[in-house]
Nucleic acid binder design. Structure first.
Length: 461
DNA sequence: TCCTCTGACACGTTTGAATAGT
DNA sequence: AACTATTCAAACGTGTCAGAGG
């Protein structure tokens, strides 16, 4: 088994230049700013290694994606989308309290994008309140007919948020895409929780899981239903305790202890406090030798040490795109390039003529305590052209199903160009983990260009 | 044997219709 | 008649657990 650390070493490119997002004017493109809600909660999960359950009928995310937008033109209409991109080309397994690479990723399932039900709506609408993707559901059913986002279990994903100025779904292609990613929202898709800490964190924070809280009736119920259950639970508790004790990771502990408190709110606050403290104390650089951190977390650590508003970055674009800015940035996967074995990183040619600078707030310091390889490999850091790996060389597997918010599947395929089999790998995730949110923007000049992106496979709801 | 996935289950939250009150 | 507040049951979302299947 190849460790992520080893893989990371395959990349030696320097990080992209970056600028502080907090400066604001560093991201004037469109002036659109996106901030993630509940950043503390996301961080708490992220520090442990977020897992999201996927089921056949579809499962909501928790925490669910909720963002705030500003900088939109109040009277202009926008469409908001979310999709999930693989973080790398690997499949993972949970082994002895940590994630390990378990082989190459499976072929990408049909790529779908969740369209926010309010779309299209004027900028004033999007800006007046936080935008929730509560009803977004994840599934492992590749034949899903409900428009849920299809993922593979035991694979790592990064949610992406896209906003397009468009009066309706049919004019999306003429719009300018602004893409944001929040590294702390990355997660591993699972069919059953692997990390008991994640389970506990979910139970403690998800109102629907109140029945499983310690102070609740769970124990009684289990005791009544299954005498062995209590024993098992005790065992689980021990496991938790052990894992905490065994773990040399202060990082992990600092976040996990927070919700060990009895009171939920206190717990929540403590988590937040711990996080703040961490932000103050710990700084990581995805570029520095700290694969250890990522070992426990699905996404790179730098996320913890920054503010949660968006940074802006140009999305990878085909050569014929008209990017907002031109800025030499590394290589991105070529649609025609075949996936290389192992890291899948070879043979990428540049598709990203332009990448805006991204914030580089905290100069990170390595985390010495994390030891396990991460499902979200550090090689996925910006400039490392990660997520496309699972899809690179597999252009045929990306389906673009466009679902309309008003019921029937929208015939957007009319402008989606070539059929799924012709889609090239998605543009690489330009996630710069030194930023809060990575922001991409690009034009869609015509159907042909448009069709090169896997983005447009809308999910319905 | 191990790992992953599935479906039934109990419990809590959310939602919306029905009803009562103003 | 219109509006608001309350009640309540069904639907939904959740993690647990046992067992199936590769």
């Amino acid at each position: 088994m190849q460790s992520i650390r080893d893989l990371k070493s395959n990349f030696s490119g320097p990080p992209p230049s970056s600028a502080s997002a907090s400066g604001g004017d560093a991201y004037l493109q469109g002036n659109i700013r996106m901030t993630l809600e509940d950043p503390d909660l996301w961080r708490a999960f992220h520090q442990i290694g977020t897992e999201m359950i996927i089921t056949k009928p579809g499962r909501r995310m928790f925490p669910h994606c909720k963002v705030n937008l500003s900088g939109l033109i109040p009277c202009a209409k926008y469409i908001l989308l979310v999709d999930m991109v693989p973080q790398d080309g690997f499949r993972y397994k949970w082994n002895k309290e940590k994630w390990e690479v378990a082989g190459k990723a499976e072929p990408q399932p049909p790529c779908r994008t969740y369209l926010h039900p309010d779309s299209p709506a004027p900028g004033s609408h999007w800006m007046k309140q936080s935008i929730s993707f509560l009803k977004l559901k994840l599934t492992n059913n590749t034949l899903d007919q409900h428009g849920h986002i299809i993922l593979h279990s035991m694979h790592c994903y990064q949610p992406r948020f896209h906003i397009v100025q468009a009066d309706d779904l049919f004019s999306v292609r003429w719009g300018v895409f602004q893409t944001f990613t929040f590294p702390e929202t990355s997660f591993t898709a699972v069919t059953a929780y692997q990390n008991t800490k994640i389970t506990k964190l979910k139970i403690d924070h998800n109102p629907f899981a109140k029945g499983f809280r310690d102070e609740g009736t769970t124990k009684k119920r289990r005791a009544n239903k299954n005498p062995g259950g209590v024993e098992k639970q005790a065992k689980m508790s021990d496991m938790n305790r052990d894992s905490e004790e065994d773990s040399p990771s202060d990082f992990c502990r600092s976040s996990f202890e927070g919700y060990e408190a009895d009171d939920g709110e206190l717990r929540k606050r403590k988590v937040a406090d711990d996080m703040k403290e961490e932000v103050k104390e710990e700084r990581y650089s995805p570029w520095s030798a700290e694969p250890e951190h990522a070992a426990k977390n699905c996404s790179p650590p730098a996320a913890e040490s920054r503010d949660l508003y968006s940074a802006e970055q140009l999305v990878p674009a085909p050569a014929n795109y008209q990017p907002y800015r031109v800025h030499e940035y590394g290589k991105s996967p070529s649609p025609s390039s075949s996936r290389t074995s192992g890291t899948g990183r070879g043979n990428f040619e540049s598709r990203v003529p332009d990448v805006a600078t991204v914030p580089d707030h905290d100069s990170p310091k390595p985390r010495p305590h994390d030891v396990a390889p991460s499902p979200c490999a550090p090689q996925d850091y910006p400039g490392v052209l990660n997520m496309t790996m699972a899809q690179a060389g597999k252009p045929g597997v990306i389906g673009h199903h466009i679902y309309g918010p008003y019921g029937a599947e929208q015939p957007l395929t009319q402008w989606s160009g070539p059929g799924p089999a012709q889609y090239p790998p998605p543009h690489h995730m330009t996630a710069d983990y030194t930023t809060q949110a990575v922001h991409h923007g690009y034009h869609h000049g015509n159907v042909a260009e448009w069709s090169q992106y896997p983005l447009f496979s809308y999910s319905c709801w």
